[in-house]
Design a binder for these strands. Structure first.
Lengths: 253, 253
DNA sequence: AAGTGGTCTAGACCACAGC
DNA sequence: CTGTGGTCTAGACCACTTG
């Protein structure tokens, strides 16, 4: 039997990342992601995993310890290891999911697509996305409604090299943000928040007065050091706030 | 000689947190915090630390691995372990340090303290901080200037139970934010960002027009499940933006 | 008493840098 | 070649929770 490969009693993770503790971590992570194990469920004890995979306890321990540090499981000495409650996705990333956000408040969500097309990149867009001016770039515009009240105007550009099918979508069942989240794994995010007064067109789209402020969220996401999308989200300030709450990095020391 | 205590060749950390790997971690962390070791310096190898403290390599390895995960040191297999460059403190926390922010842009920073006093908590303040209405709470107001232009009006309330000396400070050498950061270790942070139009008083303090929007950052911090401070920071939108860029949580998997 | 996780040891093999 | 970190093992002791 080969070393460095979980293969004993049960299924083994596809495309093993070589490190044993990683394979154990992925094994458990997959069980949780696939909902086979849900919040509160008991995870096999270290001893059980040792027996199941035929590896040492230190190795199992590292896998479980890292999952606990990530908040994926909760460990209680003397009791056991349990699947953690889903985390509220902290750090403004929640905003990526305005649809979920609205639905979780128990409100009706609707999205109106204004346009989806391929256009040549303006100098501003090219510079922000690391493209050449005039290069083809996907452009989408839509309005998000909460109980039929406009709460966000989304003006988005997408790198066609990273998401080639973006411009062919109708976005009838899925928002542009949700499509991208599914199609391209995000590795890095930048957020810039501004307050502005809307121009005439923006005010009309958001059914707001021109004298009232807009909260503008500018976001870029990267995968493999390449900008996948840049998007400006305009919110009538009277109807929207951005929030986040999270533990501080070095808190546990 | 007792177990569970580094005591061999060299000084031992004060108030040992019992776990050996923690003591090693703190030992190295302190060297870096105290600037005894600076960015780029070589950290003793695992073998050297094993010899120095008379403990096993797995224990040293865990200490160094966790420091590397935190970004405190950088490890290169086959080469060694080195003190990492200082991190840009991501995730909007940078805003805690508007003074550093301004100085790092090479601009002149100045802070004008308007008031520091003990006042009875209003219902709004009491509710946000988990106090009783009328209970004493510290209140400070100040304006932050960048090159003598007002960029932030800071309106802050502080729980006197968590930072009893706050109201006695003059804040001549240190901003209220810097004092609190030093006096009370923060464990959790909440941010809410809004856009508003300023009232007459705010507009006058920030030397801005009443028709121009304000970007308002509301922040609360917790230590031991207790609110330490709540603060509203008002920025003239034309002179300030909030930004953050950071890697996404599950990216490394 | 039995089971759990938290920690620690004293070895080991490996891939990789640099000389 | 030696030294480095990355990983893994097969034990161990402990404090804790639960029946």
């Amino acid at each position: 039997m080969s070393k460095n490969h979980i293969a004993s009693g049960h299924r083994l993770p596809k495309s093993a990342p070589s490190a044993l503790y990683q394979q154990v971590r992925n094994y458990i992570d997959d069980k949780i992601t696939s909902k086979e194990w849900v919040a509160g469920d008991r995870v096999p004890s270290e001893h059980e995993l040792v027996a199941q995979f035929g590896i040492s306890r230190m190795t199992v321990n590292r896998a479980l310890r890292e999952l606990a540090e990530e908040g994926r499981v909760v460990r209680v000495a003397g009791v056991g290891t349990f699947v953690a409650e889903e985390r509220p996705q902290s750090t403004l990333l929640q905003i990526a999911n305005i649809a979920e956000d609205i639905r979780q408040r128990g409100h009706r969500y609707r999205c109106k697509i204004l346009s989806v097309e391929l256009v040549p990149a303006t100098p501003e867009v090219a510079s922000a996305m690391g493209l050449h001016t005039g290069q083809q770039v996907a452009h989408s515009r839509c309005i998000h409604f909460e109980n039929d009240v406009a709460v966000q105007f989304e003006d988005r550009f997408v790198n066609p090299r990273m998401a080639p099918d973006f411009a062919r979508q109708t976005f009838a069942a899925e928002t542009p943000a949700a499509y991208l989240l599914r199609a391209v794994p995000v590795q890095e995010i930048e957020h810039v928040v501004e307050a502005t007064l809307p121009n005439k067109r923006q005010a009309a789209l958001l059914q707001m007065e021109e004298t009232q402020p807009c909260l503008v969220l500018f976001r870029r996401t990267w995968t493999d050091q390449t900008v996948v999308t840049m998007v400006r989200c305009y919110h009538p300030a009277s109807r929207y706030r951005l929030g986040s709450r999270f533990p501080v990095n070095g808190a546990g020391r």
